[in-house]
């Protein structure tokens, strides 16, 4: 318990028409950790991260980020405090160049400093291996490359907390390997919260794993112990 918690939630809940999508979640994420969030479809993972970054308002409970209660803040203010969020369904600026896509992510921090923006864009694109495509239109990229661009936009913000919502979905095998390397590189640099179905990716990258089921935390353990957790096994039964 040496590390400070970058993110804490207390009793965080979200009700959709009588159904608890997320219910009473207490969650702590220490600074610098790579945390994976897993669970069967409909477990409330995306809703949960939506609550964290402010896309979805909470029904009750609180979110603390960097020691500050951000529950009442709108999404863009939470982002400005150092969160970054990549969408589960690819969300990029299709009619703009890759460069401009990432520049939009970089610029907010380096307002007015063209050199810093240039450097930040190059660095982010290089990290996902898209530097040589900077002038292409984002909409012309393959699906896998669009996912990478999305991650680059996350990186470009130099966030304290990077939330990746199913980043490897639709990536080719080799791209998944590259992604794993990328996340491992990020470890120590930034805190990562990763929603992921691909258990390979989870096991290889996460320091800790949180399992959600029916909107509640089912387990929170290291990758090694989670394999043997029968409750997790049960939750995953039949879901592949």
């Amino acid at each position: 318990m040496a590390a400070l918690n970058l993110l804490t939630t207390k009793g965080l809940s979200r009700n959709f028409g009588g159904l608890w999508a997320v219910h009473n979640v207490d969650f702590e994420l220490p600074e610098g950790q790579v945390r994976a969030l897993i669970g069967p479809n409909g477990a409330g993972k995306s809703t949960f991260v939506g609550l964290l970054c402010g896309r979805i308002p909470a029904s009750s409970g609180s979110v603390q980020f960097d020691g500050r209660d951000v529950t009442a803040l709108p999404a863009h203010k939470r982002i400005a405090l150092g969160m970054a969020y990549t969408f589960q369904i690819t969300s990029i600026f299709a009619k703009l160049s890759l460069w401009e896509n990432v520049a939009l992510a970089v610029r907010r921090k380096h307002h007015g400093d063209a050199n810093a923006v240039e450097g930040g864009v190059k660095a982010a694109l290089s990290r996902v291996g898209l530097a040589d495509r900077a002038d292409q239109l984002a909409g012309d990229l393959s699906y896998g490359h669009q996912r990478l661009l999305e991650i680059a936009m996350g990186l470009g913000q130099q966030p304290r907390l990077l939330i990746l919502d199913e980043p490897t979905q639709g990536l080719a095998e080799s791209e998944v390997d590259d992604f794993k390397k990328l996340v491992r590189n990020l470890a120590g640099e930034t805190t990562v919260l990763l929603i992921e179905h691909n258990m390979d990716v989870v096991m290889d990258t996460a320091d800790m794993i949180t399992v959600l089921n029916f909107g509640e935390v089912l387990a929170e353990e290291t990758p090694e112990t989670i394999r043997d957790n029968s409750a997790v096994q049960a939750a995953y039964l039949g879901t592949g």
Partner: peptide
Amino acid sequence: TPFGKVLIAIRENEDRARMLGYDV
């Protein structure tokens, strides 16, 4: 200007612009 680029970003994908931390 960066401001104008954000307007274009809002036109192209408002939700994305918001989630890049811009006050849409």
